[in-house]
């Protein structure tokens, strides 16, 4: 009960923040919430189920491009395209999973990396439709859903908040559910889980597809909110970023993705203001985390203070 209250309190703070934040941080907060949703999606595969994918950009960008292309070139209603984005992410993840989940460990990492790389290259190759590396911008009409205009900062913040809130509460429910318990068991010891009568392949496929669905939802929303769809979102960089966010905040925790995304966002923001070598920070954080805090910040909290943190 206390744990549910804690998570609701975090959401309440996020809802209240929009009234006090100055414009710059207001936009940042909206961006962080959408990216943290992506991190939540990644965390369901990596943190809860032990599936370390290096190709999640495929699902994020897949959702973004599905929605963006449908609304920009397919002439779909924005709300309908926004529904198609997550579905595209989920379907891509299921398709990748059917193949990649026959492997494990480093092979799984390389296979997912290669599929994402092929998708990135495909976006560059079919530049006539996708705009190649530069991508394309979305018109004002494409970003209006009914009476809500996503170009308006307040609406944008609300949309980001709703998306993040839904993903976070969904993740919380999953973590406390029977399915969540099975996913954790698969992460801890797959062979033992199988001998308890669970089809672990199906469990992992479910986790990856759900992870892809949430990642796709984040990508689709990001595209509509900021009016831009670009090739860089499909690059390996965007597969590594959610890994960093989740590692930093704490893999297998509900709040870790938000904490990690926000910290990393402002760390890079700060680093770029004092030095041009912001990539250095990314690399250093990765190495320091695997060396000294492989369970992340909330992992430390869980180990030492709140054992029941979901």
């Amino acid at each position: 009960m206390r744990m549910i209250a804690l998570h609701l309190a975090v959401l309440a703070v996020l809802a209240a923040l929009q009234f006090v934040l100055p414009a710059y941080h207001h936009t940042n907060a909206a961006r962080i919430m959408v990216l943290a949703t992506y991190a939540i999606g990644f965390n369901i595969a990596f943190g809860y189920s032990g599936l370390l994918s290096l190709g999640h950009a495929l699902f994020f960008a897949g959702g973004m491009y599905a929605t963006g292309l449908l609304v920009d070139q397919g002439g779909w209603q924005p709300w309908l395209a926004l529904v198609a984005g997550p579905l595209a992410g989920g379907a891509l993840a299921a398709a990748v999973g059917l193949l990649a989940l026959r492997t494990a460990g480093p092979a799984f990492m390389i296979v997912t990396l290669m599929f994402a790389q092929a998708f990135h290259l495909a976006i560059l190759y079919w530049g006539r439709f996708t705009g190649g590396d530069e991508g394309f911008t979305l018109s004002g009409a494409a970003r209006r859903i009914g009476a809500f205009d996503l170009a308006d900062p307040a609406t944008r913040y609300t949309a980001a908040f709703l998306l993040f809130g839904a993903a976070m509460l969904g993740c919380l429910a999953l973590a406390r559910s029977r399915t969540g318990r099975v996913l954790v068991a698969v992460r801890e010891n797959e062979e033992r889980t199988r001998m308890l009568g669970y089809d672990t392949f199906r469990a992992k496929l479910f986790a990856l597809a759900l992870s892809g669905l949430i990642s796709g939802a984040a990508g689709a929303t990001y595209g509509l909110m900021f009016g831009y769809v670009g090739g860089s979102f499909a690059s390996i960089q965007y597969s590594i970023l959610p890994l960093i966010w989740v590692l930093l905040g704490g893999a297998g925790t509900v709040l870790g993705p938000l904490l990690g995304t926000a910290l990393m966002f402002y760390l890079i923001d700060w680093a770029s203001s004092v030095t041009t070598a912001s990539q250095f920070v990314v690399g250093a954080v990765l190495i320091l985390l695997v060396l000294f805090a492989p369970r992340g910040l909330l992992g430390l909290v869980r180990d030492h203070a709140m054992r029941r943190l979901p």
Partner: peptide, 12 residues
């Protein structure tokens, strides 16, 4: 862990 670490090394 080593894959993650070498990714960090790549960036650096």
């Amino acid at each position: 862990a080593t894959i993650i670490a070498t990714i960090g090394l790549l960036y650096i």
